[in-house]
Computed example of a mutant assay.
Amino acid sequence: MLIAAAILLQSVSLGPPSPPTGQDFRSGGQGSWVEMGQIGRCGLPHADCAREAFEEGRTPDAITHLQAAAKKGDAWAMRTIGLILMRGEGVAQDPETGASWLFEAALHGDKPAMRALGTAFRQGLGVDRDSRLADYWTAKSR
């Protein structure tokens, strides 16, 4: 059942909306990236703000930006949150929630998240060990 749900959900595109053309999207006007929630406090898209915060050692700020990007359908952000939680990098380790984020990223087509999810199922990290699901997600990551 999980595999059928995963295949069904993978066929749905939930990516972030494309910004309108012909204007400065950082300006904050109608239809801008700021208005659509694409821009973080640093003046860049949330994923870029997250990268900047990580480089400066501000993991909680990075996670805030990653969550905003993930809510907009950014699979990289979903995977990154999942890996941070799985490893406990700068936050309390929470493998179950981390695996959930990896699953969401995998459903959005993120190949590295699929590979990480396969590893999680193989090793029982945040999920029950399941060699069938481990093989499935590992194969999907190729």
Rank of each mutant, 00 (worst) to 15 (best):
T119P: 10
T64W: 14
R142S: 15
I3E: 07
S18D: 15
E96S: 11
M114N: 02
A77N: 02
D74H: 15
D128Y: 13
D48W: 11
A50I: 12
M78D: 05
K71D: 07
G37D: 00
M1P: 06
G126L: 03
R115H: 10
A120C: 04
P19Y: 12
G109T: 13
G124Q: 05
W33K: 02
H65Q: 01
H108F: 03
A75T: 11
A6C: 06
R58M: 13
G109A: 12
S131Q: 11
E35R: 00
R26H: 14
W33V: 06
P45E: 02
V34F: 01
I3G: 08
I39C: 00
A105L: 04
R132L: 03
T21L: 15
C49G: 00
P20W: 08
P45C: 15
I39V: 11
L102Q: 06
A4S: 05
L83R: 08
A77Q: 00
D24V: 07
S141W: 01
P45A: 02
W137P: 01
A134M: 04
G118R: 08
V127T: 07
G57A: 06
F103L: 13
G98V: 03
A53G: 00
D61F: 15
A92W: 04
L107R: 15
Y136N: 01
L66H: 07
D24Q: 14
A139N: 14
F25S: 06
F103G: 10
M114F: 09
G124Y: 03
R79M: 10
W76Y: 13
Q123W: 11
T119W: 03
R41A: 11
V34Q: 01
M1V: 11
G28R: 07
G124M: 05
R142L: 12
R79A: 08
L107D: 02
E96H: 05
T64A: 12
A75P: 02
G88V: 02
A47M: 08
R87A: 13
M114T: 09
G98I: 13
C42N: 02
R58Q: 07
E55V: 13
L44F: 10
T80F: 09
G31A: 03
L107K: 10
A113N: 09
F54V: 09
P112T: 12
G109W: 11
G43P: 14
W101L: 14
A4D: 08
F103C: 09
R129E: 08
G31T: 00
F25E: 03
D128I: 00
H108R: 12
V127M: 03
F121W: 05
W76D: 02
L85R: 03
A105E: 03
F103N: 12
M114Q: 14
H65A: 01
A68Y: 09
G37P: 05
D24R: 06
A99M: 11
R51N: 04
L83N: 07
A77P: 05
R58A: 05
L133K: 14
R58V: 01
L83A: 05
I7P: 08
A4N: 11
A6R: 12
G57L: 11
A120W: 07
G15A: 13
G118K: 09
L85Q: 03
L8H: 08
Q30T: 12
K111G: 02
R115N: 09
E56W: 01
W33E: 11
R129M: 05
